[in-house]
Design a binder for these strands. Sequence first.
DNA 1: AACAATATCTTTTTT
DNA 2: AGATATTGTT
Length: 758
Amino acid sequence: MSELTAKVDYLADLNQAQRDAVTCTDGPIMVIAGPGSGKTRVLTYRISYLIEQGVPPWQILALTFTNKAAKEMRERIEKVVGSRAKYIWAGTYHSIFAKILRIEAAKIGYPPNFTIYDTDDTKSLIGDIISELSLDKQVYNAGQIRARISSAKSNLISPKAYLQQEELMNQDKLNRIPYFQTIYERYVNRCQKAGAMDFDDLLYQMYIMLYRNPENVKEKYQSQFRYILVDEFQDTNYLQYAIVKQLIEYPGSNKNICIVGDDAQSIYAFRGATIRNIFDFESDYPQHRKFKLEQNYRSTEHIVSAANQVIQNNRNQIEKTLWTDESGGNKIRIIKAVSDQEEGKRVADSIVEWKNRAGLANHQFAILYRTNAQSRIVEEQLRRNNIPYKVFGGLSFYQRKEIKDFIAYLRLATNPRDEEALKRVINYPRRGIGESTIQKALEYANEHQITLWEALHHPELLGRSASAVKHFLAVIQSCMEQASTQNAYAAALYIGKASGLLDALKADRTQDGISRLDNVNALLDGIQEYLENDEAVENETGERDLSAYLQTISLLTDQDEEIKNHDFVTLMSVHAAKGLEFHTVFIVGMEENLFPSYMSMADPDQLEEERRLFYVAITRAKRQLILTYATMRYQYGKPRFNDPSRFLEEIDQRHIDTAVTLRNAGPFADGPRILSTIPKLGAKKENKVEVDPAQFKVSPSEEIEVGMEVLHIKFGPGKVLHIDGARDNRVATIEFHNIDDPQRRIMLKFSKLQIIKR
DNA sequence: AACAATATCTTTTTT
DNA sequence: AGATATTGTT
């Protein structure tokens, strides 16, 4: 097939608006793309088109929100233009800028292998600074201080500039945190000294570098990136847009920038994203051309209309209406449950039902929730029904303690100035280096303006633990040598052994200990895979060493996870679901104070963001949408009663399957409650067993012993596995033969059991 | 210094 | 409920 026919082919694939957005290559362009309107298709075809028009791929910069989005885009472009696609610069803001900053590190006084501090590192460092300043840490909450520093950086306010902003300084006084600026300044210093950047620095330092423009580095990148595309523009913050502007604005520039976004899907205002960027773009580039993609190819009419109705309740929005020509389809179902547990059960039952009746596969279902904490209960119920599932988000692999410990060693071996990594592992595994020693060394380091690592080399201040410290330093020293001479895997393996970390894990034979060791081994496997992956990032000299490996993982997202086995039900937060689609979507926890979140209820703007979030959730569904809520749910370990979400009322009844809703006792009606609207198929074990009360004779609880066969009035026959506690507090673990989750713990004092066989 | 017991906080969402 | 921080005990 000639290049020409290929081109004709894919352009024919597009509707008019999409085609215009693809072929209008020069000058500033804005594409407003509703959910399911073929946005990704436009982006990939546009880049393919540019390359076919003769633009060298390395002159194209495509900024996306996740690495996965970038990777998928690249793969789809590759199908059109072949291997040239490898050379386009596509990635997240953070990863692209990290890459550039490493190349240019020398120009801004950072080592090329600088460490990237994650949120935990940042918080722990701020916590240290707060106690060094002897401030009350109830008042100076490390998490809140972190957020405030982050927002200062995102608005390009340096510690020095902050000092001059009277309004901010006054705010701090009013909020009783007058020393905020001092903390901020110290924090920036310490990061610099540790050779570390936090997430915001990757943007902030990039901006500052372009602004100060050492050795004309700005012109270098301006002339390289002739075509810039920004995906999810509604979720960019002030700083991100400011950087893009620096890259695009210079005398004689064509301003070939294409932004793609949807104000209705802006869901990251809480971390500084602002839809004002969209309006600013319009006034910054008055000559821009605007295309609206309003035809939805994803969902049926009921779903699209419901989404439109919901979003109409927001005042701030760009006028547009999503439409579809997929008429009809299933109506939306609303399920009411008495408790969070029952809610999960109903979801699981529905999935079983539809798998049997409609032949759907696991991967066609998604269960979405507002907060990650909600996954636990749903998981329980899915497990009970043997439905395979996968939870995305929450505690990711890289946030597990054992993984962070290991990675801290790896970080230390490539950058011993990394204070957070050093503190994390200096006494893990235990080597008798305690709190007081670290404290002394930290004080010394701050006093003499040196790093913690250097301070530890002064044996006179160490006292009792001097020899332990000396040994530790020697171990790290040898790790550093390995890291600079060996490949990533060999170095990591050496470090795991030399540090004693692997031995410590192996020694722990508990169930948790074994799984921790498995995780660390999985990490080692991951490093091996990294060596074999030909698309992997390499360091400046083209090697796959530890420092290059650490670069690749520090900016991974949960959503970047490779999916191998495909057939499972997806569980994730609504935020994480952005950009995805599923045949059937459950949105659980549709309750006031949860969705919308109680944190947003007081502020109309935040409430609108919650509504946009709901809009995103609805539009993930292709064919079927089920909304569920519970009258009672456990929050903070306490039962809470919430009303059904106000968002439910915003959907017109004609899109709602009232047959289900009525049988369900309805979201707003009172009436007899029917626990299951969906009849159970086949013989399914219930958690109740028929026992004839007339035949039942209670045995005295003190006679019950391990190994006996007993009968329970509700759970039926079972075997006593073991008994803890004594006398009145005896608790038996009994395996019942005829119920769903057979192992139960029963307080013998209260239970009624009949001994069948002693 | 190490470990166990107790108190406190968290949950909004994430690069 | 569960994780983490703090305090107390050996």
